[in-house]
Computed example of a mutant assay.
Amino acid sequence: MAEKNQLSGRRFFVVTLLNAGITVVEILGGLFSGSLSLLSDAFHNLGDTFSILIGYVAHRISQRTEDERNTFGYGRAQILAALLNATLLIVVSLFLIVEAVRRLSQPESIDGGLMLTVAVIGLLANLISTVMMHRGSKHNMNMKATYLHLLSDTLSSFGVIIGALLIEWYNITIVDPIITVLVAGYIMFESWPIIRHAIQILMQGAPDIDYDAIKADLKAIPGITNVHHLHAWMMDENRIVLSVHVNMDDMKLSEAERLYRQIEHVLKEKYHVYHVTIQAEDLRGHDEELICNDSELHEQHEH
């Protein structure tokens, strides 16, 4: 069964083994060669291994169906995993930048040949892992965070190889910490949007849709006189939930249900809303704004 964003057990197993293996090789290579950028690549690979494990577990949890404990399901497990993985990337990157700055002021001797050999091995393993994890990275935040781990290591391996060549040919050891800073900076730059978007979803932030257009489209349906008290939030990066109060002409319940179906059709087809809750009203709230402040509304009802 080929599902979008789904990792097969074999793919997960192979990528995890590749990253665990190359982590051990690069740690040993970094220690023996004295290369900080090689050690940074090893730490990134170690982070990748945990990232894949976390992402896979979160993906499995997200497949669980709705129940009495989570009536909206478990999809946000992947958002939590993405937030954790992206945060881990930034923390590791900051640590590496601090160490790289120290190396700039206190250069150390480096075995460029050993550094180059290990970096090439790491590049091949990272390329294989990145290609295997590419599927689904454009449509799933959890997969994107995991894929970013792997992509960052691939770029890091390229940087380490360039640094190893410069060290081996020209003995320019300062290039090692410089490459470390550049790669770490790039990783932080790419990780921050994931963190920001994950926090927005967990805080029930509103999706980027045209609310005035929604109001106009719904009011254009015959029988609807006004739309107000709208709330919209994201369950994950792909699912939008929306609730809205709709003023309707006085009619039978069977007639109102036909309007409900029209409203749901407009919201799902045009605005890609996953779940819609509609509250029908006659005159109540007719003069309220589309985006209504709940605290003010409760105060009005109390008075």
Rank of each mutant, 00 (worst) to 15 (best):
L116T: 10
L116M: 15
L116A: 12
E108Q: 15
G122W: 02
G112Y: 03
L127M: 15
T130I: 08
N126M: 05
R135C: 08
S129D: 12
H134M: 10
L114E: 07
S129F: 10
M132I: 13
L124Q: 04
A100G: 11
E99L: 13
L104H: 06
M133R: 12
V118A: 01
G113C: 00
T117A: 13
L127K: 07
N126S: 09
L123E: 03
A100D: 12
G113A: 01
D111Y: 11
M133V: 07
L116C: 06
E99H: 13
V101M: 02
L127E: 10
I110S: 00
V101L: 13
E108W: 01
I110Y: 00
V131L: 15
D111G: 06
Q106P: 07
T117L: 15
E99D: 14
E108H: 09
L124Y: 03
I110R: 01
L96Q: 03
A100I: 11
S105P: 02
M115A: 01
S129G: 11
L123K: 00
D111M: 12
S129P: 09
R103A: 04
G112V: 11
P107A: 05
T130N: 08
T117Q: 08
G113H: 05
L127F: 13
V120F: 08
T117H: 01
E99V: 12
L116W: 03
E99I: 12
T130Q: 05
R135D: 13
I97C: 06
V120C: 08
Q106A: 15
T130S: 14
I97F: 08
R103S: 00
L127C: 09
H134K: 10
G112P: 07
L124T: 11
M132E: 04
I128A: 14
S109M: 14
V101H: 00
L124H: 02
G122M: 03
I97M: 04
R135Y: 12
M133Q: 11
E108P: 03
S109V: 13
S105W: 14
V101S: 00
M132R: 04
N126H: 07
T117K: 05
L116N: 07
V131G: 08
S105A: 12
A119T: 01
G112C: 06
L127W: 07
I110H: 02
L127H: 05
R103L: 02
S129W: 10
I121K: 03
G113N: 08
I97V: 14
I110A: 00
A119P: 03
S109I: 13
G112T: 09
V101F: 07
A125K: 03
V118I: 10
L104D: 09
H134L: 07
G113L: 01
I110K: 00
R103Q: 00
R103T: 06
V120Q: 04
I128V: 15
M133E: 02
G112E: 05
E108M: 11
I97R: 10
L104R: 12
